[in-house]
Design a protein around this nucleic acid. Structure first.
Lengths: 199, 199
DNA sequence: AAGGATTGTTAATCTATATTAAGGTATTTT
DNA sequence: AAAATACCTTAATATAGATTAACAATCCTT
């Protein structure tokens, strides 16, 4: 198993001793998941939190009329999972699947709790990344409330240039809360504005 | 200072020893804040996290055209604050003010860090309430994406019946992401649907 | 390399919600 | 208790973005 990325990611916040590191590594399970394959489907109870080692996953919800809405993406170095389902062991309302052939590392809820118990530092790590995730959500809510679709799109490309190039447009449109048709229209309007020297 | 509520709130997750409790209490500062008074304004760097002992506060952002958008409410027993500004010591993009004459308890960022250091348990408490806040945000994002205004309103009244009765409609409309005019229309349509036996 | 599936574009029409404007009721403040 | 402010409602009109539909351009897969 390739554990370089996950250890490096964590080491940005906390430093494991040799023993702690070994214990941590003993809890990891690797998994490969093919493009389009599901990791979780609506109704499942999430037992694992997931770290992406390679590839790209997404979670999305389906509304009453059957339309998919992307909640989050995760590429190399990102954690993904429905914290609500994981924390409360309730059925998730979301689907998680792979947008590319991917390689993931999973830790079970049980082992996470063990981790918090044995390595209190890990609680600190969790708080740090939770704070970051909370902040990202806060911004997303504010943007959905305060910005137009074009403004949200611009922010997205600036914040996630790599995703902007890597992830299909219809998926990004869904994340931004607009239809692929409108996304396309918006892009071409932006382009014509630019060519006319607008802005 | 009335510290009953804050101690009870925390005791739902962790148990302080006598000494820990005394240390914790030594870090609190009480403040009274009148209706309409600001606690923070856009551009301020938030130095304190805030617990509401009595009354009601709100945070809101102002968009490019000058419209206010409520991000969160907090009544008795709730924490309120811009975690981003507090964590990174960057200027906040939001305003926090009181909707009613209120009584709050504040802890400085410095003292919070002290708390995490001296009482590692408190890190656990923070992770727990952060997880809850994260989950609430996740739901709000999904609802904004998947639901109509009427559905969001219904969910709000079910989840926060007390707020629904206590907080002015124009503020709730803002929280839901709609205008007070549309809120009013929506309500009367719901009422007429009900009176005709619909649903 | 052909055929199907997936992804992206364009354009016409539609709809949920915004905007504007006006008047009505509470609730503070003086 | 008058005046001022805050809050709520109704209705006409406007608009950002959705929906539908048709067609290109990719990309997988055999």
């Amino acid at each position: 198993m390739n554990t370089g990325l996950i250890l490096e990611t964590i080491s940005r916040y906390i430093t494991f001793t040799k023993e702690e590191s070994a214990f941590f590594l003993s809890l990891l399970r690797e998994k490969k998941i093919r493009k389009k394959q599901f990791l979780y489907q609506e109704g499942d109870i999430c037992k694992y939190t997931t770290f992406v080692n390679k590839g790209c996953l997404r979670t999305y919800a389906i509304d009453n009329s059957g339309t998919e809405h992307v909640f989050q993406f995760a590429t190399e170095g990102w954690w993904i999972g429905d914290i609500e389902s994981l924390k409360n062991q309730t059925p998730t309302m979301m689907n998680t699947d792979a947008l590319e052939d991917s390689e993931i590392i999973m830790i079970s809820k049980h082992d996470m709790d063990l981790l918090y118990e044995k390595i209190p530092k890990y609680e600190h790590y969790s708080r740090m990344i939770l704070e970051n995730a909370y902040i990202a959500h806060q911004q997303r809510i504010l943007h959905n409330i305060c910005f137009t679709a074009a403004e949200r799109y611009q922010y997205f490309t600036e914040k996630y240039p790599e995703w902007s190039a890597r992830i299909p447009q219809n998926q990004i449109a869904s994340y931004l809360g607009i239809t692929p048709e409108f996304f396309s229209k918006m892009k071409s309007q932006n382009a014509s504005l630019l060519s006319k020297g607008g802005l």
